[in-house]
Simulated scan of single mutants.
Amino acid sequence: MTENIGILGKKSPQRTGVERMVNAPLPTVYGKFQAVGYLDHDRGEEQVALVHGEPGAENVLTRLHSECLTGDAFGSQHCECGDQLASALRAVVAAGSGVVVYLRGHEGRGIGLLGKLRAMALQAEGLDTVEANLALGLPVDARDYGVAAEILRDLGVRSVRLLSNNPRKREALVRHGVQVAEEVPLLIPPCESNITYLRTKRERLDHRLPHLDALAHWS
């Protein structure tokens, strides 16, 4: 089997459910990227990886970012998603190279936009994010990172320095054949609107958020 030779070369002939469709230059306020568009044939979803510089194959600074319309586009302070996306894009530019895989279909940890909004309504009534999903009969976390692993392999990436506070992302990548050389924290200062949400992520979803310890008095 011919080895994948990376973003600027030919795609690997290995057949997967994800097909690279287009490369396009994408100048942003953070720096210059290549937007690499994919079609996930299995799920019918369009995906995109933003690639800065020449990442190579090993120890690539990488963010797997779950789609979050309310945070990424609207600046919601209910979560820290928008700030994490911006910080990740800045980080890969500062590093000189890296990849941000933007995972569509991950809205609300995989329950969709309307499901997430319903869960947010229940959270406004006092439930936490886990309780709200369960009260709606929805999974707590339905995200699948297999597509992200396929995209990284298509880009020629074999191991990553993963920008994440979520150990489940590391476990998923390793399970799908992408090695994680390091986990790089992506800690965003909390605000009054998301402190309860962040504490729930740490206490019930195992996210590594040590910076919340300094706010033990904040209720």
Results as ranks from 00 to 15, higher is better:
Ile7Lys: 06
Leu8Arg: 13
Leu8Phe: 13
Lys10Trp: 05
Lys11Arg: 14
Lys11Leu: 12
Gln14Met: 07
Arg15Tyr: 10
Arg15Ile: 13
Val22Lys: 09
Val22Met: 13
Leu26Gly: 06
Thr28Arg: 13
Phe33Cys: 10
Phe33Ser: 03
Ala35Lys: 08
Gly37Thr: 06
Asp40Tyr: 01
His41Cys: 08
His41Lys: 15
Asp42Gly: 06
Arg43Asp: 14
Arg43His: 15
Gly44Ile: 02
Glu45Asp: 13
Glu45Gln: 11
Glu46Ala: 12
Gln47Asp: 03
Val48Asp: 10
His52Leu: 06
Glu54Pro: 07
Pro55Cys: 09
Thr62Lys: 02
His65Cys: 09
Ser66Ala: 04
Ser66Lys: 04
Ser66Cys: 04
Ser66Glu: 00
Glu67Val: 02
Glu67Asn: 04
Thr70Glu: 11
Gly71Val: 08
Asp72Thr: 10
Gly75Glu: 05
Ser76His: 02
Gln77Asn: 14
Cys81Trp: 00
Asp83Val: 10
Ala86Trp: 04
Leu89Ser: 11
Leu89His: 07
Ala91Leu: 09
Val93Thr: 13
Ala94Glu: 15
Ser97Gln: 15
Val101Glu: 07
Leu103Ala: 09
Gly105Arg: 00
His106Tyr: 05
Glu107Ile: 01
Glu107Lys: 00
Gly115Asp: 04
Gly115Met: 02
Leu117Ala: 10
Leu117Pro: 05
Met120Cys: 10
Ala121Gly: 13
Ala121Lys: 15
Leu122Arg: 03
Leu122Ala: 03
Gln123His: 03
Ala124Pro: 13
Gly126Arg: 00
Asp128Ile: 03
Thr129Glu: 01
Asn133Asp: 04
Pro139Gly: 02
Val140Arg: 14
Arg143Asp: 02
Asp144Lys: 11
Val147Ser: 01
Ala149Met: 06
Ala149Gly: 02
Leu152Lys: 03
Gly156Ile: 05
Ser159Thr: 08
Leu162Tyr: 05
Leu163Asp: 02
Pro167Trp: 11
Arg168Asp: 15
Ala172Gly: 00
Ala172Lys: 00
Val174Gly: 09
Gly177Val: 01
Gly177Cys: 04
Gly177Met: 05
Ala181Phe: 03
Glu182Arg: 08
Val184Ser: 00
Pro185Gln: 07
Leu186Lys: 00
Ile188Ala: 04
Glu192Phe: 11
Asn194Leu: 03
Thr196Ser: 12
Tyr197Thr: 00
Arg199Met: 09
Arg199Asn: 09
Thr200Trp: 10
Arg204Phe: 00
Leu205Glu: 12
His207Asn: 02
Leu209Ile: 00
His211Leu: 12
Ala214Asp: 14
Ala214Phe: 12
Ala216Asn: 12
His217Cys: 05
His217Asn: 11
Ser219Cys: 12
